[in-house]
């Protein structure tokens, strides 16, 4: 199975500071729980048609509804945890938005969603590796291979080759 070389894999998202898109006619700001300082400053800078929304525990239905009427010439700004950002982005792409219309701020926490390749369960709130899968209970190696569609990182049983070979816990960044 893939091991340490997964560090530095190109599917791991990289984030840089977000700026207002001056060309856009409409700006939608979506924050997961709190409007971050970064988002607030971009929002304040924006003088054209804009809307800000905070979703505490937003359901997919709510998100899809708020994206459905988004205009063609708009920009979407996202703040929150990485899984939230990519979940909204995935709905936005489904609604027809182009990648360059979606601007993501650096995630507010290191928490990851972890996709178990054995049972396909996604375990939330993962900060270290190995991590026990909520679905099948296996200890999973948390890799940096990220799927935008699942908003999650790839995980596989860490000690499948030798059950006694359990690596020390390490934090993931």
């Amino acid at each position: 199975m893939q091991t340490e070389q997964l560090n530095g894999v190109v599917s791991k998202p990289a984030y840089s500071s977000v700026e207002l898109n001056p060309k856009s006619r409409f700006h939608l700001f979506i924050a997961e729980q709190n409007v971050t300082a970064e988002m607030q400053s971009i929002y304040d800078e924006c003088s054209s048609d804009k809307k800000i929304a905070v979703y505490n525990d937003a359901s997919d239905t709510q998100l899809i509804e708020s994206l459905a009427l988004f205009p063609l010439a708009g920009t979407l700004y996202l703040a929150g945890t990485e899984p939230f950002i990519w979940r909204v982005a995935s709905h936005a792409r489904q609604a027809g938005m182009c990648p360059e219309q979606i601007r993501m701020m650096t995630p507010v926490s290191r928490e990851r969603h972890l996709f178990c390749c054995h049972c396909y369960t996604v375990t939330e709130g993962v900060t270290y590796s190995p991590y026990v899968c909520d679905g099948c209970g296996l200890s999973l190696e948390v890799t940096d291979h990220f799927a935008r569609l699942h908003s999650a990182y790839f995980g596989y049983q860490v000690n499948a080759e030798d059950s006694a070979d359990m690596p020390a816990k390490r934090e993931v960044s």
Binding site: K23, R25, L72, A73, G74, C98, E100
Partner: peptide
């Protein structure tokens, strides 16, 4: 498209 803010990849 550029003036209207329509994304180039469209």
């Amino acid at each position: 498209a550029d003036e209207m803010g329509i994304p180039p990849s469209a």
